[in-house]
């Protein structure tokens, strides 16, 4: 696949530690667009769209936020805890967007499965279809995410 200079720049930026220590790509040697295409496909294979996934994540974070760090019941047998840090984190894509440093951890009470995302993740999934590269500390596995939140 052809790679434009913009993509190349973004790829390098995502692999650098300019925004988060360790970068967004982990050990993944695929190009960013390959990662995006693969993850979008696994979301679609389960019958969901990126918008639906992001909307559900928004919804859960919104409810869990009220707990001020204490785990609260977010419905559908899930528990959500929000952890906030100071400062804002910017989107690595070349457009002005920044988010509170807020981590939402959702636990399925029955199975004990757990997944964590940040406000930036919701934006990355919604706008860019990006779940981070495999091996990145904060990668969200689309299949795991969907089985927990839906």
């Amino acid at each position: 696949m052809k790679k434009t200079p913009e993509m190349e720049k973004l790829d390098n930026f995502l692999r650098s530690s300019r925004i988060v220590a360790g970068g967004f790509m982990g050990e993944d040697i695929r190009d960013v667009d390959e990662v995006i295409v693969a993850d979008t496909r696994s979301v679609e294979r389960l019958g969901y769209s990126l918008e639906q996934v992001a909307a559900r994540m928004h919804e859960i974070t919104h409810i869990a936020k009220e707990g001020l760090g204490v785990c609260v019941d977010v419905g559908a047998g899930l528990k959500g805890c929000v952890d906030e840090a100071k400062g804002r984190i910017v989107c690595p894509w070349p457009h002005p967007a920044s988010f509170d440093k807020r981590l939402t951890t959702v636990t399925d009470v029955e199975s004990g499965k757990e997944i964590t995302w940040s406000d930036l993740h919701i934006h990355l999934i919604e706008e860019h279809g990006f779940f981070e590269g495999i091996g990145s500390a904060m990668r969200i596995e689309p299949v795991k995410l969907i089985t927990i939140i839906f």
Binding site: L68, G69, D83, E84, K86, D100, R102
Partner: peptide
């Protein structure tokens, strides 16, 4: 504290 705590 956290933005959420300040808001609440």
């Amino acid at each position: 504290g956290s933005p959420g705590m300040i808001e609440a």
